[in-house]
Computed example of a mutant assay.
Amino acid sequence: MILTGLICGALLGFVMQRGRFCLTGGFRDMYIAKDNRMFYALLIAIAVQSIGVFLLIDFGVFEYSAGSLPIVAVIVGSFIFGIGIIFAGGCATGTWYRAGEGLIGSWIALAGYMLMAAIMKTGVLLPLNQKIQSGSELPSNSIAGTFGVNHWFIIIPFAAIVLFIVYKQLSKPKVSIPLLKPKRTGLAHILFEKRWHPFVTATLVGVIAILAWPLSVATGRISGLGITTPSANILQYLTTGDNSFLNWGVFLVLGIFVGSFIAAKASNEFRFRMPDVKTGINSFVGGNLMGFGASIAGGCSIGNGLVMTAMMTWQGWIALAFMILGTWTASYFVFVRPRQKAKATKLQSVPTT
C-alpha cells in the first residue's frame, strides 16, 4: 500500500512541473512584482482540499484531530523557512520537482534540507526542537473549535471568498500572447506543450491533496501531503538502513521527483544546469534554513501552507502568514536592496553639468 505514495507523488510532481506551481516565486512576486496570481492559486488548492477532506471525515473515512498549537515555534520556524526558500530558490516541494528537471542547485538545496531536518528530528538538535515546540503550546489548534462552531461554518465562507476572487481574476481583460505553432496535437499538446493556467494547476493540486489522505491513512499514517519529515527519513534510512523510516511519505517525495522528471523529459525541459559558486552556497544555506524552520514549525509550505490551512487550523494560517513575511524579508535583502544600491551608484556616476 505504501507504493500508492509513489503514484500520488508522481502525479503531484508532474502537475507541479507542468504548471510551474512554485510558492517561492509566488510569495516573492506578491512583494516585488505586485502579482498575486500564485497566491490566489494556493487559495484554490486549499479550498478544494478542505472541502474534499472534510467530506471524507464527515463520512467516517478517517478521524482527525487538530491537536494543540505551538504558537511561538510556528511563528519562528515559518519565518526562518520563508527566508530559507528564497536562498534555496524553491520551497520544499518546488525544490524536489526542480531537482527532477536537472537543476543541480536544487540537489544542493535538498542535501541541506534533508540534513538539517534529520538533525532536528532525530539528531543532536532534537532536544532544542522539542523545547521550542513544547514551551508555547496553546490548547486549541482548530479554528472552528476555538469559536465553538461546525467546521463548515468556516469552510463555506472561505470557499465563497475564493470563488469570488477567481471570478474577479478571470473577468479581467485577457492579454493576448503570441504563441508558437504547436508541434503536437491532442492530449500530447495539452500535457506536454500547452501552457497551464495556474488556477487549473491549483485545482489539480487540491484534488491530489484530497487523494493523499485516504491513501496515507490506509498505511497507518494519519496525514496528507508532507515533505519535511519524509525528506529527513530518506537520509535516516540511507545512513542507518532502518526500514522503519520507509513509509508512505518517503515514497510520496520520491514520486514527486519521478513525476517531475517524466514531465520535464516529455516536454523537453530537462537539462542539467550547474549553478555558480555563490548560487550553490546560497542553495545549501537556504536548504539548511528550510530544514531548521520547517522542523520547528511542524511543517513546510505544503505541510503547513497547503495541508494545515485546508484543515482550518491556526497553525496552518499563522505559518502561511509568517512564511510570506519571511520571503518578503529575504527578497528585500536579496533582490530589492541590491537593485536600489546599483541604481543609486549609477546615478552618482552620471556627470553633472
Rank of each mutant, 00 (worst) to 15 (best):
G52K: 02
S68Y: 10
L204Y: 13
M1N: 10
F147R: 11
F333Y: 03
I324Y: 05
I302K: 12
T327W: 08
P178T: 08
H151C: 06
L215W: 12
A202V: 00
V48R: 06
L179W: 09
K346I: 01
S223K: 15
G303T: 02
D35P: 07
P198D: 01
L211H: 05
N129Y: 11
L23W: 11
A99G: 14
N150K: 15
R221N: 09
A319R: 02
L347S: 13
S65A: 14
P182C: 09
S78L: 05
G259P: 07
I165S: 00
L3Q: 06
G9R: 08
A232Y: 07
G60Q: 08
D58R: 14
G102E: 00
T228N: 10
Y64N: 05
M16F: 11
F284A: 14
K194R: 11
W328G: 06
S216P: 10
A88I: 08
Q133G: 06
C8S: 09
I227P: 02
G316I: 03
K265M: 05
S171E: 07
A10Q: 04
G145K: 13
R221T: 10
Q169H: 09
P182Q: 04
I222S: 05
S216Q: 07
I296W: 14
F245H: 10
L246R: 12
G316Q: 09
A319D: 00
D276E: 07
P214K: 07
T93I: 12
I2A: 11
N288G: 06
A47K: 05
G226C: 00
I83T: 10
G84P: 06
